[in-house]
Amino acid sequence: MEILLHEWLSVNGLMLFTIGLLAAIIGVLFGAAGFVLLPAMLLIGIPIHTTVAVNKFATGFSALSNVVSFIIKGHLSVKKFTSLIVISSFGGVFGAFLATRLSEQIMNVVACVFLIFAFFIVLCSNKFIVRDIKETEEQPINKLIPFVISIYDGGFGPGSALMHVTYHLKKQYNYIKAVEVTRMITFSSCTGAFLFYYFTGIVNWGIAIPVSIGSIVGSFLGLKIIPYIKTKWIQILLPIIFFLLIVQVVSDLLI
């Protein structure tokens, strides 16, 4: 415990806290926490599977803090989304299972395919992102889509929350509601994935704790900023973020 405490309070611990903080802010606002978290951790020499496991723990923990806040404020109903929670949890477990049996290169290929597919959906469907706070008639959710995205989230993750947000916007959810539901799904898939990684011994607590604390702080800061986000910004930024994620993954494949 003393060794862990020393590691958390070191310069490396502060750097990990900052990475978690920035990733969570970007994750809450635009669903692209992996755009910061994964490449930053890989850059400082953390192995890919350890990075993904820590990412699931940190992202899941910060999402939980948001979900609890949403439920207390009456913004989310656990009963209404029970089936979605169960499905995304199983998706996270299955994704983690697949990831532990794939090489880093194959994981990057899978990520690239998912991101390119989602990128074209955003480009073709940009007209639906036209709502701010006002209520709209929400359409039924096809549970298969969140399940498939949760598999990807459990095994790798960059852009998964962005895919969820985009899907719920297409189903006529306003932006804030789409973010709230996405945080709940993210918590479920990350929890399922993390538990699998934990029981297979791929978790480094010296890394996971400072990143998670940063993620919790960043997630609440992100929620404070959301009401000030304009829909025009979303229309411009979503395709750009997707494109940058694709460039990042492709560059990893070519290295």
Results as ranks from 00 to 15, higher is better:
residue 48 I to H: 10
residue 217 V to Q: 05
residue 140 P to H: 11
residue 47 P to Q: 08
residue 6 H to M: 06
residue 70 F to W: 04
residue 119 F to N: 04
residue 254 L to K: 11
residue 253 L to Q: 09
residue 101 R to L: 10
residue 24 A to S: 12
residue 106 I to T: 11
residue 214 G to F: 00
residue 118 A to F: 07
residue 139 Q to E: 14
residue 108 N to G: 09
residue 244 L to V: 10
residue 60 G to Y: 09
residue 49 H to S: 07
residue 111 A to F: 05
residue 232 K to L: 10
residue 215 S to F: 03
residue 4 L to D: 01
residue 199 F to N: 01
residue 227 P to R: 15
residue 16 L to S: 03
residue 152 Y to N: 04
residue 247 V to L: 15
residue 236 I to N: 09
residue 56 K to M: 11
residue 15 M to I: 14
residue 221 L to V: 14
residue 50 T to W: 11
residue 248 Q to W: 06
residue 163 M to S: 14
residue 29 L to F: 07
residue 39 P to Q: 07
residue 201 G to T: 04
residue 193 A to Y: 00
residue 159 G to M: 04
residue 107 M to Q: 14
residue 115 L to C: 11
residue 22 L to K: 03
residue 214 G to E: 05
residue 144 L to T: 15
residue 112 C to D: 11
residue 125 S to F: 10
residue 232 K to R: 13
residue 56 K to H: 05
residue 191 T to C: 13
residue 177 K to S: 13
residue 151 I to H: 00
residue 141 I to E: 08
residue 187 F to H: 08
residue 250 V to S: 15
residue 99 A to V: 03
residue 22 L to P: 03
residue 84 L to E: 04
residue 221 L to S: 15
residue 99 A to T: 06
residue 127 K to C: 05
residue 85 I to S: 01
residue 63 A to N: 09
residue 68 V to C: 13
residue 86 V to D: 02
residue 32 A to E: 02
residue 249 V to L: 11
residue 135 E to N: 08
residue 171 K to C: 12
residue 48 I to Y: 10
residue 206 G to Q: 08
residue 155 G to A: 10
residue 233 W to Q: 14
residue 128 F to Y: 15
residue 32 A to N: 05
residue 43 L to R: 02
residue 163 M to L: 08
residue 199 F to Q: 08
residue 234 I to C: 05
residue 100 T to M: 15
residue 197 Y to I: 05
residue 178 A to N: 03
residue 26 I to S: 12
residue 181 V to P: 00
residue 104 E to I: 02
residue 239 P to L: 04
residue 133 I to L: 11
residue 232 K to C: 02
residue 151 I to L: 11
residue 175 Y to P: 00
residue 136 T to R: 13
residue 42 L to D: 01
residue 60 G to H: 07
residue 138 E to S: 08
residue 65 S to K: 06
residue 19 I to S: 06
residue 148 V to G: 01
residue 85 I to V: 09
residue 197 Y to E: 03
residue 30 F to M: 09
residue 46 I to A: 00
residue 18 T to Q: 06
